[in-house]
Design a protein around this nucleic acid. Sequence first.
RNA 1: GGAGAGGUGGCAGAGUGGUCGAAUGCACCACUUUCGAAAAGUGGCAAGGGCGUAAGCUCUUCGGGAGUUCGAAUCUCCCCCUCUCCGCCA
Length: 421
Amino acid sequence: MLDIKFIRENRELIAAAAKKKHIDFDVERLITTDDKRRTMMTGTEKLRAEQNAANNSIASARSPEDRAKLIADMKVVKAALEKEDEGLKATMKDWQNLMLQVPNIPDMSVPDGDSDADNKEVKAWGEKTAFAFEPKDHIEIMTKLGMLDLERGQKVHGFRGYFLMGDGVRLCFAIWNYAMKFFGAKNFVPVIPPIIVRKINLFGTGYLPQGEEDMFKTQDNDYLAGTAEVPLMGMHADETLSVAELPKRYLGFSPCYRREAGAHGKDVRGLIRVNEFYKLEQVVLCEANHEMTIKYHEEVNRNTEEFIESLGIPYRTVINCGADLGLGQVKKYDIELWVPKESKYREISSASYFHDFQTRRLNIRYRDADGALRYAHSLNSTAIPTPRILVSLVENFQQPDGTIKVPPVLVPYFGKEVIGS
RNA sequence: GGAGAGGUGGCAGAGUGGUCGAAUGCACCACUUUCGAAAAGUGGCAAGGGCGUAAGCUCUUCGGGAGUUCGAAUCUCCCCCUCUCCGCCA
């Protein structure tokens, strides 16, 4: 959500934003609706003022006759007010619907583009792994080593189901424990949030109303969130924080649920795209200051890069193009890991910032040094998703004999240097 | 699942039809006092919107919505949320 004043003063920016994000949104329609809303408000407010003024005279009327006269007059005002109010309410409803569709404005540095194919590489790290043998894909490697059972996963869950087993599970725990230590050292407070959340949190973060299709829902009309970002942002909804407690850095750990409704033909095999997985997620709330937001955005993205570097997996970082940005996102980096068998990079992490788009919806404010109330800024980034990370990890570290070399930083957490020997 | 209680400002907590945006306390801010602090005293202190260069004027908001009324924090109905007890389950 953006400030209507800002929208009115920068309508061409909004129009350009919608175009860049490939979102169908008509600013002029919102402005017209807003004009209508303002006119109608003036009308009802005048009548209300009249009514409010009459309240006192009625209460303090000197005689019953005076009183009756005043009341009779007010009956007329009341009728007029009711009529005006009806129109205003209808207009307000349109207005609110339109307001929820206003896209946030992408940063200047965001490239134009039509799809994720137009994302621009800004960094590449590590040598693409070279093999002296024909490398296998993660499905074959992990299945052979008893780490993964897709067949039974599909028997039990259906399409996109999986069982992670044995060293597959141990490897996840090793990654989680290592990540806890790694991100803990960067001042993140670990949080296990509720992932079954009320609808309001999804509106607040910007996943609704547009993303309904991609979410699982309970019979109580709650939702299974697709990321810990949702509950972690909802955590401080309707709160007024003090500037001293900012920035808030949270490392959420949670299961994540995604229907992948729009991805039917995509990534149909293996652990790349699944309906349920676990993820460590970085969420930051900071002061409403663009430079600060930038600083933390670079920081959270760099954290994940460092983490990947410490594992020793080749990756690249891309800046997402306009069409690949969500409604509320100003700028986003994706980190993509090298997947040898597919001979391409696959997304593992997404770091984005929103300015006050989310906090405005969630009503997360703070009192700054001058005592003024301001909406905080919010940003988030994947720390590490499991089991998706295993795809690259296993494929890059596979050995000719079908075993997997465990990255040295994980050995203390995993307990062995090789899987499958 | 059954029964009950309740949702008021940053927090706690009064208020049951009119002068209530709302007592009081805490917190917070300013000043006085102090070498400084604490304590004490005095004063200030809700948010959001509209009009206005400004001073200011004005509207809305006591969980949300609908209703009764000239007038609702206060009465009625529906919904949401929280808590307590019992039951059930882990």
